[in-house]
């Protein structure tokens, strides 16, 4: 009588259930972290743009004080909400948010040039360059400070 051949369960040995769950959880964590970074960058950029071009933004008027306070607040929330992450990951997330925020400000202010509307509008190129540099100067220290304060508070 022929005995039935039994295949070894390689799949479950290679990818045990626990490991699969770990991967899934890590994926969710990555997605949440990416969403929080993108959210922080968008809020910082929108507030800055509402200060630079108040008549073109569908937002209530933003004072210069808010431009400094809101990146600190969003950084603080980013640091607090990434509770599961290490201190290093929080700081790196803050840096990603800053880079993304400055990129959004750059793309928004340069949109008329990139879309070819104001390609030979020299005055506008200089004007937007100035505001992009100011955005980097304001958003970088404030957001980073918020992330570090939020991170230390969460650790504590």
């Amino acid at each position: 009588m022929k005995s039935r051949m039994k295949f070894p369960d390689i799949y479950s040995r290679l990818w045990p259930r626990k490991k699969l769950e770990d991967i899934r959880n890590r994926k969710t964590d990555y997605m949440i972290r990416a969403a929080l970074i993108a959210g922080t960058a968008l809020i910082d950029a929108a507030v800055f743009l509402a200060m630079v071009l108040p008549d073109l933004a569908p937002m209530p008027s933003v004072t210069s004080g808010l431009v400094f306070m809101i990146p600190v607040g969003t950084g603080l929330l980013l640091g607090l909400l990434l509770t599961a992450e290490s201190y290093k990951i929080r700081a790196i997330s803050g840096l990603y948010a800053i880079i993304l925020s400055c990129t959004i400000v750059f793309l928004t202010l340069y949109w008329p040039i990139l879309s070819g509307v104001a390609s030979d509008f020299g005055f506008y190129i200089l004007w937007s360059m100035k505001w992009i540099m100011i955005a980097a100067i304001i958003i970088t220290p404030t957001t980073l400070m918020g992330v570090l304060i939020g991170g230390s508070t969460a650790e504590y």
């Binding site: 959210g39 968008l42 809020i43 071009l53 569908p58 929330l77 506008y124």
Partner: peptide
């Protein structure tokens, strides 16, 4: 809940950013 509210604000900010870019192009043009 905090993350959800934060992301709603972020969506509104995204809309504001797109709106600024569009309006700016129109006004300059």
């Amino acid at each position: 809940a905090v993350i959800a509210i934060y992301l709603i604000f972020a969506l509104y900010s995204g809309f504001a950013v797109v709106s600024v870019a569009h309006n700016n192009s129109q006004v300059i043009s």
